[in-house]
């Protein structure tokens, strides 16, 4: 494992995938490797794709890979699928749609299971992005789970967020609007041959018109993508989409907003890391000395309550007032 970080930076797929695996599995030493590569990250354009299941995200990702490759860019893809809450197992099926690129050394597709993480990504996603970034991938696409409206985690990681929708979802659009519409930098109406595409277009437009927008600010474009059953039309639409993605990145660069996005990402990462660092250490000790069991007993017997118990723990381990607790969301 010692050399993993170095090999990753040399672009070695096997080491990169292994390092991602070690992060997923929370192996000791994995974070050390991330530390080594971290200074070399920050070059890749991270593109998130989110939207409901069945919206065609994987097929779209597959076609975007083709577009970016044609433009000479190397591509990494992280495809997240849900783990079963019952067995912990998962079928990671997104890569099926991207298998035609499997033999292309300029493309690296890695599937991730959520392993219980909410928000549409996996806990390892952030570091996995760093790994692909450090490998030198020009574009890193992150495809979220696609289960519902709470998929906002992606904004902490991506420079450009695509919200992929399909016509004919009925009332679902309302729920999705409430959750993910604010985060889109680009909207995609996929399978635009279907009835209701025009209506969806109007709805998104109306929503975009609602908020105030400063002059010169980015107005999220809405890209209509034809059915994959019309391959030539589909290709043309996705070509256009890939241009819009690049234009958005250029906009971020030109308006010095890229830094804001980076800052947003760093903040989220530090947040998570701090929580992990403190919580994990504390929990491990509580379990090891049997304190956790005793606390459960106290709560059961109504001798105490969860809040008091937590405060006592914080007092003991953080050694100060509540004010010095790390800020949790």
């Amino acid at each position: 494992m010692v050399e993993l970080g170095k090999k990753v930076m040399a672009g070695d797929v096997r080491s990169a995938s292994r390092l991602i695996r070690n992060i997923e599995d929370n192996l000791p030493g994995a974070k050390q490797e991330i530390r080594k590569i971290f200074p070399y990250t920050g070059k890749a354009h991270v593109v998130g794709l989110t939207g409901p299941p069945g919206a065609g995200k994987s097929t779209l990702t597959d076609e975007l890979i083709r577009c970016f490759r044609r433009k000479g860019k190397t591509v990494g893809v992280l495809a997240v699928d849900p783990s079963s809450p019952f067995t912990g197992g998962a079928i990671l099926g997104d890569r099926i749609r991207m298998q035609r690129h499997a033999e292309d050394p300029g493309v690296f597709v890695r599937s991730l299971a959520t392993r219980g993480t909410m928000g549409g990504l996996s806990k390892a996603a952030g570091d996995a992005i760093h790994v692909m970034d450090a490998m030198g991938k020009d574009i890193v696409m992150v495809e979220t789970v696609g289960i519902g409206q709470q998929e906002v985690e992606i904004i902490h990681h991506a420079h450009t967020v695509l919200v992929v929708l399909v016509p004919g979802m009925g009332d679902e659009i309302q729920a999705i609007k409430a959750g993910v519409m604010e985060i889109g930098d680009i909207f995609v109406i996929n399978k635009a041959h279907r009835e209701g595409a025009g209506k969806l277009f109007k709805e998104i437009t109306a929503m975009l018109d609602m908020g105030p927008r400063e002059p010169g600010a980015w107005r999220p474009p809405i890209v209509m993508v034809e059915s994959v059953a019309e391959p030539h039309e589909f290709e043309r639409c996705v070509d256009e989409l890939s241009d819009k993605i690049e234009a958005h990145y250029q906009y971020l660069v030109n308006t010095n907003q890229l830094g804001d996005r980076q800052r947003r990402r760093s903040l989220a990462e530090i947040n998570a890391a701090v929580r992990d660092a403190i919580l994990e250490t504390v929990l491990r000790r509580l379990v090891a000395d049997g304190e956790l069991d005793r606390m459960v007993e106290k709560a059961l017997n109504k001798e105490s309550d969860p809040y008091t118990l937590a405060e006592q723990v914080a007092e003991r381990y953080l050694g100060g007032s509540k004010a010095s607790m790390p800020v949790a969301e």
């Binding site: 797929v13 096997r14 995938s17 292994r18 991602i20 695996r21 783990s83 197992g89 998962a90 079928i91 990671l92 099926g93 890569r95 099926i96 298998q99 499997a102 033999e103 690296f108 597709v109 890695r110 599937s111 299971a113």
Partner: peptide, 23 residues
């Protein structure tokens, strides 16, 4: 287990490279 399924009609090259990418 975490399972990655490739779908049908894969070349040996696709199988091997996908297995490596997925560790």
């Amino acid at each position: 287990f975490e399972v990655i399924y490739t779908g049908c009609h894969q070349t040996p090259e696709q199988c091997a490279s996908a297995a490596i990418q997925e560790d």
